[in-house]
Simulated assay, not measured.
Amino acid sequence: MDVLSDAVAAMRAGRPHSSRTVRFAPWGIRFPASEGAGFHVVLQGSAWLLPAPGPDGAAPPPLRLAPGDVVLLPHGTEHGIADRPDTPLVDAVPAPDGSWPTLPDRGPVGAADTLLLCGSYQLHRARAHPLLTELPPYVHIPARIGAHPRLRAAIDLLGAELAEPQPGSDAILPALLDTLLVLLLRTWWLTERGERGERGERGTGWSAALADPAVATALKALHGDPAHPWTVAELGALGGLSRAAFARRFTALVGRAPLAYLTWWRMTTAGALLRTDDLPLRTVAQRSGYSSEFAFAKAFKRAYGTAPGRYRAAAGGAR
């Protein structure tokens, strides 16, 4: 798998949810902070995103969302969405499974002021991948004619399935939501990279890491086979760099030395396997690059503070 797919898969938990709702002015909804992520798409009309105040108590200015605009809240931060910035907000209370109840539509029969497509994802944030933690509080992807055709196609499919459910919709919707999340992230990173290039700026962090041929090649190799006994020299050679030059570049962009990142990713993968699969601990150890179950258990306890079996039981994973 590629790095972006791996990062999302390792954090995913439970079942994603979505809804297609009509709103009649005045309307306003407040979403509390959550462990997951969410998105809003304005299919018709307009809306205002109302970000919550930051740690300093200052709230970012409201953001107007036009028809076709998409906004992703990757960190589950509290926020509101309304027809006007000054409309009072009604609290939305999530269900135990992470879904949001559909608020009753208000207003006269007829064309809705606003038609929204909204969704939520449950995520494990204990070992969140930096690809996601580096994202801003919200990601706004404005509608542009002819831009982002794959993202627009996924939104259209999701909206159609929600508007007119057909046999198989229960299987299609989660797959479409997972696809939409990856497309949202990919679209934002590609857009950011392009805008930086136009300004003549060098990227930093993970956006730059994925754009750097040597580092991206190494990351793809690490994620493709985390159990392989990689060496820094071997990874550097994949990108045509010396051991020292590769180590410096990788550490500067990724934030961890190559083998430190490999160990972190192995343990992150192991945690995801323990939560979601019934594989024997011996198999999880082997897939994580450990030939000895004892060595794996020791490394896992150092990373998570508990033994693999206890972690699996506490997380509700398969036994």
Rank of each mutant, 00 (worst) to 15 (best):
P55W: 14
I172Y: 12
P258F: 05
Q122L: 15
A285F: 01
A13V: 08
P53D: 05
T306S: 10
P308K: 00
I155F: 11
G76Y: 09
Y138R: 10
S18W: 15
A315F: 07
A318I: 09
V8K: 08
L49V: 04
G159V: 13
F31V: 01
L190R: 15
M11L: 14
P85S: 05
P51K: 15
L259I: 01
A59H: 13
L273G: 00
A13G: 04
V3S: 05
A285D: 01
F296C: 00
Y138W: 12
G68V: 14
R319N: 00
T263K: 00
A52N: 08
A208Q: 09
F31P: 00
V42Q: 10
H140F: 06
W27E: 08
S242Y: 06
P104H: 03
T133L: 09
A52E: 14
P67D: 12
V254P: 05
G194E: 08
T187D: 12
S169A: 11
L177P: 03
G316A: 09
A111E: 03
Y311G: 02
A260Y: 01
R256K: 12
I145K: 15
V71Q: 14
R15D: 15
L115I: 09
S169T: 14
F246K: 12
R199N: 03
D83S: 09
L63S: 08
P62T: 02
T231L: 06
L123I: 13
F246R: 13
R287G: 02
S207A: 10
A270I: 03
A218G: 13
F39E: 06
E192W: 15
V8G: 06
I29Q: 12
P149S: 09
R256P: 00
T217Q: 08
F300R: 02
A7E: 06
R144N: 08
D113M: 08
T114D: 05
A33F: 02
G236C: 05
G119V: 06
L259T: 01
G289R: 02
P94H: 13
G119E: 04
V22W: 09
L184V: 00
I172S: 10
D105I: 00
S99C: 08
G255P: 01
A260T: 06
L235Y: 05
L177H: 06
G107A: 03
A143F: 14
G236N: 04
R127D: 14
R266F: 06
R186A: 10
G14H: 13
P26N: 06
A318H: 11
H79L: 02
Y121P: 04
R248F: 06
F250K: 03
R150M: 12
A95Q: 15
R199V: 02
A147H: 09
P280Q: 07
P55Y: 12
R196E: 09
S291W: 00
I145G: 13
V8H: 06
L274N: 05
A252L: 11
S169H: 12
G146T: 10
W188R: 11
P61I: 07
R312M: 01
P67V: 07
E161C: 13
A244S: 14
R20K: 15
V93P: 11
L235P: 09
V109H: 06
P51C: 13
G80H: 02
P308M: 01
A299Y: 00
V215N: 04
D69E: 07
R127F: 11
T251N: 09
A82I: 04
D170T: 03
G110R: 04
P149I: 14
F296M: 01
R144G: 07
A260N: 02
P51F: 12
P137L: 15
G146F: 15
E198N: 04
L184G: 03
R312E: 01
R106G: 05
F39N: 04
